[in-house]
């Protein structure tokens, strides 16, 4: 059985054109670039939320050959701003995640919390837990620690990198902070005009 790995061939969206990128199982590719350069749109293209050119594959499955919702559940985009629609936190999860919540410093009752009392940092961490509760096969993370203090950031990084390694998930991680890229990234790509260039 072939391991899932994420592969982009000749992808074009917005200003970016003809992007080739292969992400191995368990590899974290960090993506940086000035705001408006198209980082988030590239993630949206991979998640098939926007029309785009080129071919994207997860393992041996082709994006165009899968139902869009099944594809999105597999590649799992976590946007910078999370949205919540039910009354309580727990209703948003696909399954109970007690260990994960504890690892990120939440008490077990957080699933009963009302959405209106969450801070932006709590929302961001809980959005990650929610995404992982769906057991994705890849992760597209858009600045996953932007609203977090140093301590929470460290906690999230530790948890995510361990989980990515264990589940051998290919990850595309949009980040600004060079030290974070240093800590979590296997590779670092920067957007330069209409293409990606290696930042190492």
């Amino acid at each position: 059985m072939q391991e899932p790995a994420l592969q982009l061939e000749g992808v074009s969206i917005g200003a970016l054109s003809d992007i080739d990128l292969a992400i191995a199982p368990g590899e974290v590719v960090c993506l940086s670039g000035p705001s408006g350069s198209g980082k988030s749109r590239l993630l949206r293209a991979v998640a098939d939320l926007e029309a785009h050119g080129g071919r994207i594959r997860l393992g041996d499955r082709d994006q165009a050959a899968m139902h869009a919702h099944a594809w999105r559940r597999a590649v799992m985009l976590v946007p910078a701003e999370s949205q919540w629609w039910h009354e309580r936190v727990g209703e948003h999860f696909a399954r109970d995640m007690p260990e994960t919540l504890a690892e990120l410093g939440f008490e077990a009752e957080v699933v009963e919390w009302s959405i209106s009392r969450l801070s932006s940092g709590e929302k961001q961490r809980l959005a990650l837990v929610r995404a992982l509760s769906y057991d994705p096969e890849a992760l597209l993370l858009d600045e996953p620690t932007a609203n977090l203090d140093a301590q929470s950031t460290a906690r999230v990084e530790t948890w995510l990198t361990r989980l990515i390694r264990e589940r051998r998930l290919p990850v595309l991680w949009v980040a600004h902070d060079p030290s974070q890229i240093e800590r979590v990234g296997s590779r670092h790509l920067r957007i330069a005009g209409d293409r990606l260039e290696s930042a190492l």
Binding site: A47, L49, A68, H69, A70, R72, R73, A74, M76, L77, V78, P79, E81, S82, Q83, W85, A94, R130, A131, Y134
Partner: peptide, 20 residues
């Protein structure tokens, strides 16, 4: 629209995402 899109990101069908 942001809520609908986030529901889609989690793998919901268009039908589920706009059902409410």
């Amino acid at each position: 629209r942001a809520v609908i899109e986030h529901r889609l990101m989690l793998g919901q069908t268009w039908h589920e995402a706009i059902g409410e």
